[in-house]
Simulated assay, not measured.
Amino acid sequence: MTSDFDEISSIQPIIIQKVSLNESVQTLPDVLAVEEPLEIVLAWKENEKWQQKSLSVTMRTPGQDEELALGFLFSEGLLLDRSEVQKVRVSSLINKVFVEVLPIVAERSKRLQRHFYTTSSCGVCGKASLEAVRQTARYPISEVTPLMHWETLFRLPQLLREAQSTFDQTGGLHASGLFDNEGNLLILREDVGRHNALDKVLGYALKTNDLPLSNKVLLLSGRISFELVQKAVMAGIPLIAAIGAPSSLAVSLAQEHGLTLIGFLRNSHANIYSGAERLV
């Protein structure tokens, strides 16, 4: 298991006033989860000259910025594998990460329609959203065969919660955890943005050449949006579980690609929305 979260840059001390009906006002020290913008910039050589293209600005918790950028590029279909990346330069002072890539990646960025679904009110119709994922998904989801025991699945939320060190201090971060089928936590990432936390997990898998994640289980600390299922599809993850609820489009995407989708995983209860056969 690994959760090398940079607590120096991800937590900000603050003095607060704590108020309750039964006690007087108290002045106490507290900590906040840091939220800062990160600009992801694509760089490539064309005719012996360096070219740059700003792809996205996302609000994130500082830490694992390289993983965040790589995971974002991969989950959006611009980056197919690690060999297409020449260098990643993170500039924390100006909140930018420069990803130097082969020219073919720049060509993909020109051809692909921008479909960075960062909010639930993006205005893109469901049919167009599903079609975009169908066109860019590289790894097929594994066949629907038993993957995990129910007893093991019910243990995952507690394991994830125990590993969320930064959440313990701030209470303000989402988490994405990747488990094997025996319930071992392989990688955990936290961020103020749920999509960023998952991008960091995927970026780590890309760096370590672990893609596709065809026999892994993804656990999300909050709700399941369409974009999170989209990212899991891109990585070939066959089973997604979450503490919260899925959206309608998230369920549709999971059903179309044959994913197992589980919501409200808490207190030894869960709702199955698709792919129950993967659970023993």
Rank of each mutant, 00 (worst) to 15 (best):
N271D: 15
L261T: 07
I262M: 05
I243V: 15
A235Y: 02
A242Q: 08
T260H: 02
F226H: 13
I272A: 02
V229F: 06
Q255D: 07
A254L: 06
L279G: 03
S248E: 13
A270I: 02
P246W: 02
L239D: 02
L279H: 01
R266Q: 15
A250W: 04
A232E: 01
V280M: 11
L249R: 14
A276D: 13
N271A: 11
L261F: 07
A235I: 08
T260G: 04
F264A: 14
F226R: 11
S248K: 06
L259V: 05
S268A: 14
Q230F: 04
L228K: 06
V251Y: 03
L228I: 08
I240Q: 06
I237P: 00
A232D: 01
S252N: 13
Q230W: 11
L239H: 04
A276L: 13
R278Q: 09
A270E: 06
L249V: 12
G244Y: 10
A245G: 00
S248H: 08
S225M: 08
S247G: 14
Y273E: 10
F264I: 04
T260K: 02
L228Q: 14
G258D: 03
I243N: 11
I243C: 07
L279T: 05
A254P: 08
A241H: 08
M234T: 01
L259M: 13
A245V: 12
S268C: 10
I240R: 07
N267A: 14
Y273D: 10
A250M: 03
M234Q: 15
S248A: 12
A254R: 05
Y273W: 15
L253F: 05
A241R: 05
L253C: 11
V229G: 08
L239K: 00
G244N: 10
A245K: 13
I237C: 00
G236Y: 02
V233G: 04
N267R: 13
